[in-house]
Design a binder for these strands. Structure first.
Length: 291
DNA sequence: CTTCGCACCTGTTGGC
DNA sequence: TGCCAACAGGTGCGAA
C-alpha cells in the first residue's frame, strides 16, 4: 500500500492536474471500485457528472476532492478515494491505452487529460459523500487520526494515548485511529530509527522512548516524501506514472540478511500480525517476556 | 470500550 | 515445464 508519503505525492498531483476542472463524464469499469458508494455505480456517476472538483485534501492515507457548490446538493459533497494496497490515480492523455486494471475513468469538459483509477487488487475504492461546508472532512474519514507531519498533530495527547494502550508498539503505529498515515514500511523504519522492537509493550514505553519514536516517524516520512515516496515496482507511482526513490534509503524494510546500516548486524525478518517485520536484532532487541 | 484475527482481491515469486 | 504455497505497501468488520 501506499503510505503517507506516496499518498501525499498523489494528492499534490491531483491538486496540480485535476483541481479546478469540471467532470464531463465518468465510467465505472468494475463495481468493486465503488462498492462503498452504497447508492450504486449509476448514482456515483450522476453525482459527479458536470461537477467541478475544487481541491485535493488528504487525511492519513485517504484522499478527497470537494465538489463546487451546486443547486442540486444543499450540503457540500466530495469525491473520496482510498488507494488500498495497489490503487493508482493517474492523469493521462485520452490516447493512452487502457490499463489492464482500469477501474474508473473521469473525463473533463476542457477535453484535456483524463483521470484514471487503476487498481490491481481492488482493495481501494471511490465514493461520493457529504463533506460538511464543502471543505470539511467527510464523516467516513473522521476516525482517521491527524498525521505527525501536520502542524496540528498533538504530541502530548498521542504520547498519553499510546502509553494507555495495552498492545505492542508496532500494532499501535499501524492503528490509524491513533496516528495517521503510517503503514508497514514506515513503521519498521521508524522503529529502527528509535531502536525499538515492534513487540515492545506500549504501556511500558517511557516518554523519552515515545519522543524518539515520533522523531523517527517524522524524519522517515519527511525524507520519503522528499524522495517522492517508496516504489519497489510500477505499482506505486505519482499521477504521471513516475516512481519515487526512497527504496534506496530503506534501512531494514525488505533488507533481510543485509547489514544494519548502523551496526552491521544482519537484519532479520519476522512474521508479525500475519505480515512481515524487519529489524536489527542488535539495535532493536526483543523485549523480555512480561512477568 | 479495547484488542485481535481474518476476509477482501489479483498477481508475482520461488521451491519442488 | 507445471503446480502450489507464500507473499505483497491496507482497512473494515465481527468476535471475544
Amino acid at each position: 500500500m501506499p503510505e503517507l508519503p506516496e499518498v501525499e505525492v498523489v494528492r499534490r498531483g491531483l491538486e496540480r492536474w485535476v483541481a479546478g476542472r469540471t467532470v464531463a463524464a465518468v465510467e465505472v469499469h468494475h463495481p468493486r471500485a465503488v462498492r462503498r458508494h452504497l447508492e450504486g455505480a449509476d448514482d456515483f456517476t450522476a453525482a459527479l457528472t458536470g461537477r467541478t472538483l475544487t481541491a485535493a485534501h488528504r487525511r492519513g492515507k485517504y484522499l478527497w476532492m470537494p465538489l463546487a457548490e451546486d443547486d442540486s446538493s444543499p450540503t457540500g459533497r466530495a469525491l473520496v478515494a482510498h488507494l488500498g494496497m495497489s490503487g493508482q490515480l493517474l492523469v493521462e492523455k485520452p490516447a493512452q491505452p487502457d490499463e489492464t486494471h482500469l477501474r474508473a475513468r473521469f473525463t473533463f469538459t476542457d477535453g484535456g487529460r483524463e483521470l484514471r483509477f487503476v487498481d490491481q487488487r481492488t482493495f481501494g475504492g471511490l465514493v461520493v459523500e457529504d463533506a460538511p461546508d464543502g471543505e470539511g472532512i467527510p464523516p467516513r474519514l473522521a476516525h482517521i487520526a491527524i498525521d505527525p507531519l501536520d502542524p496540528s498533530f498533538d504530541e502530548p495527547a498521542f504520547t498519553a494515548a499510546l502509553r494507555r494502550r495495552h498492545t505492542e508498539v508496532k500494532r499501535a503505529l499501524l492503528d490509524q485511529t491513533l496516528i495517521g498515515g503510517v503503514g508497514n514500511i514506515y513503521a519498521d523504519e521508524s522503529l529502527w530509527r528509535a531502536r525499538l522492537h515492534g513487540a515492545r509493550p506500549t504501556d511500558r514505553l517511557t516518554r523519552a522512548q515515545v519522543a524518539d519514536l515520533l522523531d523517527g516517524v517524522r524524519s522517515v516520512l519527511g525524507e520519503a516524501l522528499a524522495q517522492g515516496g517508496t516504489s519497489f515496482d510500477s505499482l506505486y507511482v505519482d499521477v504521471n506514472g513516475r516512481s519515487g526513490y526512497f527504496s534506496r534509503f530503506l534501512a531494514v524494510y525488505g533488507q533481510a540478511d543485509r547489514p544494519c546500516p548502523r551496526c552491521g548486524t544482519a537484519i532479520v525478518r519476522e512474521s508479525f500480525m500475519n505480515r512481515s517485520s524487519y529489524s536489527c536484532p542488535r539495535c532493536q532487541p526483543r523485549p523480555r517476556a512480561r512477568r
